[in-house]
Write a protein that binds this DNA or RNA. Sequence first.
DNA 1: AGCCTTGATGTCAGCAACTGACATCGCTCG
DNA 2: CGAGCGATGTCAGTTGCTGACATCAAGGCT
Lengths: 199, 199
Amino acid sequence: MMTVADIVGRIGRVARWEPDARGRLAEAALELYAERGYEQTTVADIAGRAGLTERTFFRHYADKREVLFGGPMPELVEAALREAPAGEGALAVGRLAMLAAAGALPPERRPFARKRQAVIDATPALQERELLKLDSFARLIDRALTARGEEPAVSRIVAETSVALFKVAFAAWIDGDGGNDLTTLTEGAFVALGRVSAG
Amino acid sequence: MMTVADIVGRIGRVARWEPDARGRLAEAALELYAERGYEQTTVADIAGRAGLTERTFFRHYADKREVLFGGPMPELVEAALREAPAGEGALAVGRLAMLAAAGALPPERRPFARKRQAVIDATPALQERELLKLDSFARLIDRALTARGEEPAVSRIVAETSVALFKVAFAAWIDGDGGNDLTTLTEGAFVALGRVSAG
DNA sequence: AGCCTTGATGTCAGCAACTGACATCGCTCG
DNA sequence: CGAGCGATGTCAGTTGCTGACATCAAGGCT
């Protein structure tokens, strides 16, 4: 195969490999998972469509699930927690963290997110991974709040609750008509918590 | 091998197989996971310690993780949701469901639960499965609340929040000194939510 | 210019999780 | 007493995933 040279050749600068192997793998994986289902897709299939080998897939992603979870959300959450103003209360900090997460998914990413979510919703193995990622946000929030001097009990409740609300907002964003962006829905979930826990 | 006949022989009634293969597998698995770690344990190891073969393991449990999650909690949650009094508010129903879950773990099971949790906490693959099980509770609550006529938005928030609070209570039960039972801690988490979301 | 290190990739062998197909054989029921 | 059932065993095969080693263009060093 000389596809690399073929394609890049006419541009002038010859790169040794086609660029963005990671991205190509992620794209190929989502397509294949959507076309034939996660279990009916083999890692070799994905690598093949991306013009790579199975071994290379595992150099970029730890396993067959991880390829759908490569986004920048964790970094955004960490940054928000790092930069949260000192005066804020615990729940407000959790809210800021989740709003930062929501920032990773602007309206234009909704088509992609919906396709991806359809695959995840059809695949328990992928749901597990998604839940673990979300849970890791709770751990980040918990750690940050404890570091801020919050009581451990408050820390944990706020951390878990914040993520729970983000999950609700995200589901509403995916299921809705696109009229509200994820940030707005996330704020709404935090507001609604007050009503629910009061009523 | 004639161990079955050997052991059971002296009792009189000869059963064809040693009883409770499922339970033996679960026990063997927890022991081995605790001794050498989840990844260092092979399914053949587990089956061997239980006096069975690998193939039989997979007839009792769908995969290597599931063997730690065979408890009756889902049934208890379903029953609680089925029998929740008609007058109760949404959050109260979620609370009842989680209290039912707590009922599966009386104080005398705490040593077992702690050992099991230590294994889970050391193993991301098992954390994923645990989170999926908990998430399934949220889905049960959501469905029950919607069937009761709650608004979908309220339903989802209450479902996710209830499970979030149970997670907090469970962690406190495992980490604490055993002075409070899980039911009490679960009630406490629901009470604390009011304080946190107000303050 | 010529060499050398580097880094992304390829190749290959191997283990372990899981599955389908078929065999075994006490027990139970008619 | 024979037939069928059901839990288990045996075996072969696919696939996820890993370690060890090879390749080879790019970029820096002399």
